[in-house]
Design a binder for these strands. Structure first.
Lengths: 126, 126
DNA sequence: CACTTACGTAAGTAAGAACTAACCGACTGG
DNA sequence: CCAGTCGGTTAGTTCTTACTTACGTAAGTG
């Protein structure tokens, strides 16, 4: 699965981070400014910013002792592109499948209870 | 903040649910079929399906004893619309802010340490 | 060179998300 | 009916995560 997409969705899936993201859309802000406008502590904001940064959605720049965060247009655009592509693919396949019901619903052979397949890479990375 | 958007992002933010979503894009599937193709148990799939359903991304229909799940084009379209709108707004505001640096970076008055504002509604609802 | 401001990060905690096992109702076919 | 299939739900466990407090550090200031 596309990692950028998953990371981006995960990042924006949290309400607090989404709020931060929105705030930053209005213009660059320092961590303190963000924290003061939100119901969580400054360190919490820092941590969220790190996630957003790792997802490529924001960038930071030192400004004297403070650190200004702003959206990263490139990252945002990229995520948006991946997202659009995902939608398009999914809905395309869906409509195609809808038009020709075909030979769906075969029972498919059983498999031993304990044998799961393709150990999907958990998003769990912390 | 828009609830549909947040719920949708949260739903697709999980890798397992995203995988389920993708599978369903290829055509309707029963819970068992999904579970067999994935590294998690059937109940887990059921629970994820519930989340996706609550987010309006999938629909289910009884088919004898089984229950077929498929994407919900309406819900998907709606989420996509909200998403696009969000992007557009955010990037619009961002560019506008970028063009006129204005009188940013005023220190802003302090506020008593303990007073946080607008107890943002946590997504925690279980 | 203290002193202050602004952050990041570590450590610890508590809420809750994801998962499994077990149970139970609904439907199907002999 | 009765046995078997299918899937939702509950209870309980484990693993994450979002958060806070405490501490360490870099950069301006008097």
């Amino acid at each position: 699965m596309n990692t950028y997409l998953q990371a981006g969705l995960d990042a924006l899936g949290d309400a607090t981070r989404m709020a931060i993201f929105q705030r930053l859309a209005a213009g660059p802000l320092a961590v303190n400014q963000l924290a003061r406008a939100m119901p969580v502590s400054r360190p919490a904001v820092s941590q969220h910013l790190k996630v957003l940064k790792d997802a490529g959605l924001v960038r930071d720049s030192r400004q004297g002792t403070r650190r200004l965060y702003r959206l990263d247009p490139e990252g945002v655009a990229r995520l948006r592109a991946h997202f659009d592509q995902m939608w398009t693919r999914a809905m395309g396949a869906f409509q195609q499948a809808a038009e020709k019901p075909e030979e769906e619903n075969r029972h498919g052979k059983r498999r031993g209870r304990g044998s799961r397949q393709e150990e999907r890479s958990r998003k769990r990375v912390h």
